Amino acid sequence: MSIGRTDIADFSYFLAIARHGSFRRAALELGVSPSALSHSLRGLETRLGVRLLNRTNRSVTLTAAGEELRDAIAEPFSRIDQARDALNRFRDTPMGRIRLNVASDAAILLLAPVMPVFMDRYPDVEVDIVASNRLVDVVGSGFDAGIRYGGTVPEDMIAQRLSGDIRWMVAGAPAYFERFGMPEEPASLKDHRCLGVRLGDDRIYRWEFEGPDGEFDIAVPSMVTVDDSRSMLTMALGGGGLMFGPEPVLRPHLADGSLKAALDSWATTGPGFQIYYPSRRQLPTGLRLLINLIRELDPLGC
């Protein structure tokens, strides 16, 4: 059986569904509707004469035939993507699409300041950003790269620093300190209302400090636990409790007095943001240009 243009398009759709295990998420990556994907896969299965997917209301899994097809065509399609991206060096204006999975803080602190400049310089490069603190398999989920704090980057990835180290602080609203007082040392936090931090792997974060004997961490009492700095910041500004967060997020509110630092002499410093991607994948031109621009503009000033 000869392979036509329709088959090639449907193969790419099939690979996206296989990566995500979901028509909805694959459709988001490809910029098409889930119904269009479903129609495409039904047509492909009809032409091939085999069922490629097991579909239920809750999940999409590959049949044995689907697994064999995925293994056979994944590498050739990857090489096609690499070859297409390599052609950018012959163009006056780079083009293409990059997908990033980034920590929420990175979206605000690193990407938001540089994207207006990036769009002006490279109008033909489309950037799809998913901001989430939940750790995901960037390769299996169809992303070109991820951006996380350095201490959370998977060890099997190539990583590049995008910022210097970041200072982590405790802060609260003046109204909070008027009501509950200022903690004198980290151990005093047991008597305060603290906003808990849920990490991307569902662990509850132990607040970290540095004292005369070195670094240490403590579990703090938390009536409320969230996984996003913006939510914590809103609660802290309203006097709802003490938050533990990166100094760049807190800086403007410390400057205007809407937040006050606590335990400042105990503050610690941790690894800054890193971008990471699989070693076996050629770096897309658009991603390389974005990395260079972040370093050029240095939005965190470090």
Rank of each mutant, 00 (worst) to 15 (best):
L254P: 03
E247T: 09
T269C: 11
R295K: 10
L242A: 06
L233V: 01
D228I: 00
A261Y: 12
L233C: 08
R230F: 14
L297Y: 13
G240R: 08
L293W: 03
M243V: 12
F244D: 10
S279P: 04
S265C: 08
L254Q: 13
L242G: 01
G270F: 14
R295E: 13
L287G: 06
F273T: 04
D256S: 08
R280D: 15
S229I: 09
I294V: 07
R230E: 15
T285S: 06
L254F: 12
L254E: 13
D256Q: 02
G257A: 06
E247F: 14
L250S: 08
Q282D: 11
G270H: 15
G239M: 08
S279L: 01
P246N: 05
S229W: 10
A261R: 15
E247L: 15
L233E: 12
D227R: 09
Y276V: 01
L263A: 06
Q274V: 05
M243C: 09
S265Y: 13
D228T: 05
G286S: 07
S258L: 05
Y276A: 13
E296V: 05
T269N: 07
L254Y: 00
S258G: 00
P252D: 06
L283V: 09
T234Y: 05
G240A: 07
Q274S: 02
F244K: 06
M235E: 11
M232F: 11
A261K: 13
N292S: 15
L283E: 03
S258K: 00
Q274H: 14
G270E: 13
A261C: 07
F244N: 14
L263G: 00
G286H: 04
R281Q: 04
L233S: 05
L283I: 03
L259W: 03
I275F: 00
A236M: 13
Y276R: 02
K260Y: 09
E247D: 15
A236L: 07
A267Y: 04
T269W: 10
S265R: 14
L297A: 11
L263S: 04
F273I: 00
A267F: 10
